[in-house]
Design a protein around this nucleic acid. Structure first.
Lengths: 229, 229
DNA sequence: CGTTCTATTGAAGAGTATCAAGCCAAGTGG
DNA sequence: CCACTTGGCTTGATACTCTTCAATAGAACG
């Protein structure tokens, strides 16, 4: 096991981040930090960004597109722990190795940051502050997701997921950049169950989908919220 | 939403924590920090420590005993996100309010820390370093637990849970301080399923239980690990 | 248009939940 | 010391949700 975030530079940033009146939940992309100290990278759909066990020398911020991070069981069962949207930071590790696989879901542009002290400490620790906020948001999302995975029905999972997406995307109409398989592996279901639950919500009038089924309009957010609890 | 960790004092600590060669995984209680700047509190079994929505003005470190933190759905379904053993820190929030309920599982002694800068910054930031390490460990455990909840069978969940407990407790013989109901609500199962899976592992010779069923000896850790993946 | 890929739908089956006893250990009071 | 109670754990029978297997439908692309 090696140094992970691996920087003394993170410390001042943490303090500052925590002093902000709360962590920004709506994840406003902070364009100021995008140009900072990071190189750029573009990924084609399904392109691997890093794999479990890779040296975790860098972390990433999504500029555009969507990224999935996931773990695998030996027999191939997959759990997508999160989808990362523009503005999100992922790939920050405590240890020296990545504990996940990361792949682009769509064509994706990233900013790649080396995790040395220098880069994080620069600019008054703006980037480091972002990293810490990202970690805390990840933890909160993971905690909410455990409730979903442990205790919610298929329909409730879909409702929760769609609400969450619409919140992050910021509108009642949401694109679904990921496949049903991706959704299934995120929600602890099978493709078929996802499809059925979506269809059911649609028939009940809570949501509406275009012919290609790759977007959703939340017709009755109140009812969805009741379902999601 | 308010300041959460709420301290400038955390920043230097974060840096130091991250510079340590990896985060201590076996969670060795750091007795040096226990006496520091915190008041003590003792809780009877099932006593509430804090509830969801409470102002998060303090966080906690377990000295002895076990704590469960959980979320509830409106109809009472419960998800225990974690059990906290001696040396663990819990109750650290990004926002101004606790997002969980916390209760003592057994008779428990805690150290209570106010989350002001002063306390965290003191002593060369030793406490703050612990807080950051605790957050990262929480995140990693949450991620592993999502894989369990989303993709593992009942038997695999029990195997994983017992291995994890034995690792944290540090021995092949593990006390089970929590009830079957607590285990069920942590593993996304029912009491009956937990009981059946435990019995099954016992019949297969992978584990052994005393008559009162509140402890486990791991007879075949290799087979358990294979199950847990 | 045909091919391909993804999503949907249907039927059958597996695994877990639910409902209902029964069991066992510990505690209580006679 | 021994019923009696109590609470948690286990076991059994049945139900139900979701999965699995299989086929169809629909959109995207050449």
């Amino acid at each position: 096991m090696q140094t992970a975030l691996a920087t003394a530079g993170l410390a001042p940033v943490l303090a500052t981040a925590l002093l902000d009146r709360g962590v920004p939940r709506a994840a406003p992309p902070q364009p100021a930090a995008e140009a900072r100290a990071g190189t750029r990278r573009t990924c084609a759909p399904d392109e691997e960004i890093f794999a479990e066990g890779d040296r975790a020398g860098t972390f990433y911020k999504v500029v555009s597109g969507v990224v999935r991070t996931y773990k695998l069981l030996s027999d191939g069962r997959r759990q997508i722990d999160a989808f990362h949207l523009p503005g999100d930071i992922f790939g920050v590790e405590a240890g020296g190795e990545h504990r996940f696989n990361a792949e682009a879901v769509t064509e994706t542009r990233l900013v790649v940051h080396r995790r040395e002290a220098r880069a994080l400490a620069g600019d008054d620790g703006l980037l480091a502050r972002e990293v810490v906020a990202a970690m805390m948001r990840s933890l909160e999302r993971a905690q909410d997701h455990m409730l979903l995975l442990g205790r919610k029905s298929a329909k409730e999972r879909i409702a929760t997921f769609l609400l969450c997406l619409s919140q992050r995307a910021g509108g009642a109409a949401v694109e679904l950049p990921m496949s049903r398989t991706d959704m299934a592996d995120h929600l602890g279901l099978t493709v078929e169950s996802v499809s059925r639950a979506v269809t059911q919500l649609e028939r009940e009038g809570l949501i509406e989908l275009p012919p290609n089924r790759r977007a959703v309009v939340l017709r009755d957010p109140r009812a969805l919220r009741r379902l999601a609890d």
